[in-house]
Design a protein around this nucleic acid. Structure first.
Lengths: 230, 230
DNA sequence: GCCTGTTTGAAACAATTGTTTGAAAACGCT
DNA sequence: AGCGTTTTCAAACAATTGTTTCAAACAGGC
């Protein structure tokens, strides 16, 4: 059916254009007119194919998530029977590539980083669907490296230390480029960056490994979400 | 002069209100009307005291920078003759407090984080003035921990690994609250968080220390490289 | 060719936003 | 009190933005 094919085409053009502009400017600053211009469509196209700007944004988020995962699965380039060390390195590399890689739709990871920084609100369940599973992966890797008997808090903290280093290079990339121009964030050098982070993190994790004594006891505090943003 | 006092008062009220709203919503999404309402001033007040929304934002950035540094200097709570380890811990703690602490103007650090994430453009020199000096501090600490002979790239990478972990808890705090509710980002527990990051980082840095070089034959990637970065 | 449902397009609408204006109020000073 | 300057205020302006409208263009089945 040619009807459907053409339909898909404009829908897809809108999705891609919107993704690029949303990731560059954020939800609010991106204008429908700019998106439509880039997609070669009419201003009314967005409200026709998606119902609103908000829905367009949601569609873009889902599209970006699927694409990013498809292109850079967390087990990218793993050998047979990988050690936890291998898996940690692969995880870091995939995350860097996903967020900084030059692969055409490089905006996927950036869009997610933006959403992470300032949740637009209408997508709590998206976090659960897209971000949480990946967090569980690195937590499992860390748990294995820590050895049996590691407490949950330590696992979570170490996992955040790993992802924090990776995410940093996305969310602060403008500043890093200026402060440490020695560090290249371009595709061929991301390998080296990944190796550094993996090595740094392995040493950090081992400092908390089971045989090392725990830092201190902390009562888990179940909530108090004061940070109501928007 | 009562004239100046009153003048300062509204100017200051505007600065504080603007800081809170800018840090919460970003430059674009924040509206002058909302800022003025919060400050109890007229809509025209912004264009009278500052010339434009843009200038107000710049003034807020400067104010936030000064205040944050005044409240949490990077040597906060250091003992006499501090070891590099002490200084690393103090640096991490100050950064966390600055960005996550509840102390009244908690928006300072958040605003900077936002600026870091998406530079508004009209303030390259602000980065040099506010961010770069602090980066040099942690680089110096790392360099001392690495020992003599450490190459610049390693120093920069390790420094970014440290600050990356800290910044992560600001820029991803919404997600972290959901993924790892065990981790408390509230004031009394920031101490523990700082200690974790410091310990993790110390181990990470030591893995790159000059004398540790032979040890990492157990590493998957013997890592002569770092030279081929850039 | 003709009809039906879908997609596109130019124009218009309603709401919001940064900024300006001009007069009133407040203030400092003699 | 009187005067010149500074500050505040309500209203209005001009530009932008998301959304709607409605007619034209189009596709596909008969």
């Amino acid at each position: 059916m040619d009807k459907d094919r053409r339909d898909q085409e404009t829908r897809l053009r809108l999705l891609k254009a919107a993704g690029e502009i949303f990731s560059k400017k954020g939800f609010r600053a991106a204008t429908i007119r700019e998106i439509c211009a880039k997609a070669g469509a009419n201003v009314a196209a967005v409200n026709y194919h998606f119902e609103s700007k908000k829905n367009l944004y949601l569609a873009v988020l889902n599209y970006a998530h699927e694409e990013a995962l498809r292109r850079y699965p967390p087990e990218l380039g793993l050998p047979e029977n990988p050690s936890p060390e291998d898996r940690l390195t692969a995880f870091v590399r995939a995350m860097l590539l996903r967020t900084l890689g030059r692969g055409k739709p490089a905006w996927h990871g950036r869009l997610m980083a933006r959403e992470r920084f300032e949740p637009t609100g209408f997508l709590d369940d998206f976090i659960d669907r897209a971000i949480l599973p990946r967090a569980r992966i690195i937590q499992a890797i860390v748990a294995e490296l820590l050895g049996p008997g590691a407490d949950d808090l330590t696992i979570h903290l170490c996992a955040q230390s790993v992802t924090g280093q990776c995410r940093h290079y996305v969310s602060s990339r403008h500043v890093i480029r200026r402060i440490s121009p020695l560090i290249s964030l371009e595709e061929p050098h991301l390998e080296d960056l990944a190796r550094h982070i993996a090595r740094f993190s392995l040493a950090g994790i081992r400092a908390f490994a089971a045989h090392a004594e725990p830092l201190q006891s902390r009562e888990p505090q179940p909530e108090a979400p004061t940070g109501d943003f928007q």
